[in-house]
């Protein structure tokens, strides 16, 4: 029986303040499991100071390799590879997608497939509760699969501990890791900023959330840097019937909190801190 709610924080545009907000929600919410799904640029651990309890290797896909002793240099694999990953009878693992076409078609059976190490995922303890997070290997693929692994572990812990919430720091963009992070969640909190790029990216990520049937709630960060554009974003939300979860002021304490490695709501009693507390109350009424 699932009786917890999952909130995923995303943004479309990077650098709008996702991790700052998740760090504060981690401190505000009770009985929760925390997740960092931004597996190729994870930062949440810098605020939550986790103690790693469990470290797991993740193998998400395969890479081809050619045995030059067996290879007859017929060139069929290079001709057929759609990814331009074979050159001069050698596989460039950076561009090999592990499709196995060359492996299956090589007349000499000179191609072998090796499991690709995609990164590590961790279960950690923090002052705020368990954190499931990951680190994608350098130049590794399958970030979407790694996100799914992290998320399913978070759900497992939430069930075991009868948690009330899963709170997830999501990746930027609208592609594969974002889809893997938000599909099936109860709510996505979209953090935007009053810039032309912030607004433009908000529209695309709202469409993506709706495409995957996830309910969006919008938060405008640093809204006072451009009150006019913030108003435009509010009007857009009203027009699209999207609930506004709140607005957060530009506040130098945010940078101070990152530098000190503390969630903003613990570091400061300032304006932004108070506004984030209100957003959590707003999220609760929505859940």
């Amino acid at each position: 029986m699932m009786n917890y709610k999952e909130v995923v924080v995303i943004s479309g545009k990077g650098g709008t303040g996702k991790t700052t907000i998740v760090g504060s929600l981690a401190s505000l919410a009770e009985e929760k499991v925390l997740t960092d799904c931004d597996v190729d640029a994870a930062d949440l651990h810098l605020l939550l100071q986790p103690e790693i309890k469990e470290e797991n290797e993740f193998y998400g896909g395969e890479k081809a390799s050619i045995d030059r002793k067996i290879c007859s240099e017929c060139g069929l694999c290079e001709e057929m590879c759609r990814f331009g990953a074979i050159d001069n009878f050698q596989v460039d693992s950076l561009f090999c997608e592990g499709c196995r076409l060359c492996f299956n078609l090589c007349p000499e059976e000179a191609v072998s497939m090796e499991a690709e190490f995609s990164g590590h995922w961790y279960v950690s303890q923090t002052r705020y509760g368990p954190l499931v997070h990951a680190k994608l290997g350098v130049a590794a693929e399958n970030s979407g699969k790694l996100v799914s692994r992290v998320r399913s572990k978070a759900h497992e812990i939430a069930r075991e501990t009868s948690a009330r919430y899963i709170i997830t720091d999501g990746p930027p963009g609208i592609g594969c890791p974002v889809i893997a992070s938000m599909t099936g969640a109860d709510l996505v909190l979209i953090v935007t900023e009053p810039t032309l790029s912030g607004f433009h990216d908000l529209e695309r990520v709202v469409d993506a959330a709706r495409h995957f049937n996830v309910c969006p709630l919008v938060c405008i960060n640093k809204y006072d840097l451009h009150p006019g554009r913030s108003q435009e974003i509010e009007d857009y939300c009203k027009d699209k019937r999207i609930k506004l979860g709140g607005k957060v002021s530009f506040d130098r304490d945010v940078i101070g909190s990152i530098v000190h490695g503390l969630p903003l709501v613990e570091y400061s009693d300032g304006k932004a801190s108070g506004e984030i507390k209100k957003i959590w109350q707003e999220i609760l009424t929505w859940l």
């Binding site: 597996v39 994608l136 590794a140 970030s143 930027p172 963009g173 592609g175």
Partner: peptide, 10 residues
């Protein structure tokens, strides 16, 4: 170049 360090960046 997009943010992150995964396939789109490569």
């Amino acid at each position: 170049i997009p943010p992150g360090t995964s396939c789109p960046v490569i």
